[in-house]
């Protein structure tokens, strides 16, 4: 699938929006654009993406032409799909202060809730809201709980929450409004790595239970 003029629009003097592509194609294209090094920022939205260019280097029409000349998704190839990430989650306990209340609210036993999450085919929608916070979709609809009425001022790095039918992971410590049901054992952020955040938009995720509840 190639990018056409219908998919792109200038939404500022240094921003081009890409929309109207099916999700997986859009994510693949976005990763290729990012890897090209031609763009200052390539940012994922849920249904669109925006690239930022250096307006002293490219005029707006040149930037549009350059974007249109990008390789099509077919040329990029399917190996551009990111490898699935397996998150080991320790459910409940000190790092999952809302685990019991979420089970009660959903009328599930602890084992049932864990099984439902581990069986789900999950995918990262976007990383945003706060640095490194990943919105992960793919939970069964029945697992919908609301956000906390009062957000917590400080949530530890690695916290694993569910809300609004999604999972959310906090790569860094920060404020957070999602009910927390556990902690991801893997490091979600490592400033020494070339890609410091482990999760990226479009990436497949599988949750595995770590330890006992």
């Amino acid at each position: 699938m190639a990018l056409t003029e219908d998919n792109i629009s200038l939404i500022g003097d240094d921003l081009i929006r890409v929309a109207g592509l099916p999700g997986p194609e859009l994510r693949t294209l976005v990763r290729a654009l990012r890897a090209s090094g031609d763009w200052l920022e390539v940012v994922d939205g849920i249904e669109d993406s925006v690239v930022q260019f250096d307006p002293l280097r490219l005029r707006p029409d040149e930037a549009v032409r350059h974007l249109l000349s990008s390789k099509s998704v077919n040329e990029i190839g399917s190996d551009a799909e990111l490898p699935e990430v397996c998150l080991e989650v320790e459910f409940g306990g000190e790092n999952g202060p809302d685990f019991n209340s979420v089970c009660d609210e959903l009328k599930l036993t602890k084992q049932e809730l864990i099984a439902a999450i581990c069986d789900a085919e999950l995918r990262v929608d976007i990383v945003g809201f706060t640095p490194g916070f990943a919105y992960i979709s793919g939970l069964p609809e029945a697992l919908t709980v609301p956000r906390l009425k009062e957000p917590r001022k400080r949530v530890p790095a690695g916290s694993f929450g569910i809300a609004a039918g999604k999972c959310g992971t906090y790569a860094l410590e920060g404020p957070g409004g999602w009910p927390l049901i556990g902690r991801v054992v893997n490091r979600l952020f490592n400033s020494e790595r070339e890609t410091p955040f482990v999760l990226s938009a479009g990436q497949k995720v599988r949750v595995m239970r770590w330890g006992d509840v």
Partner: peptide, 28 residues
């Protein structure tokens, strides 16, 4: 749905008071 925003983006929430994003603004 949540979409990328940048410094200089002007958004208009339902109550009709637009806001301009600055250096520390959220990314989406």
């Amino acid at each position: 749905q949540s979409s990328p925003v940048f410094p200089g983006s002007v958004q208009c929430p339902p109550e009709g008071k637009p806001f301009i994003l600055l250096a520390d603004a959220q990314t989406t």
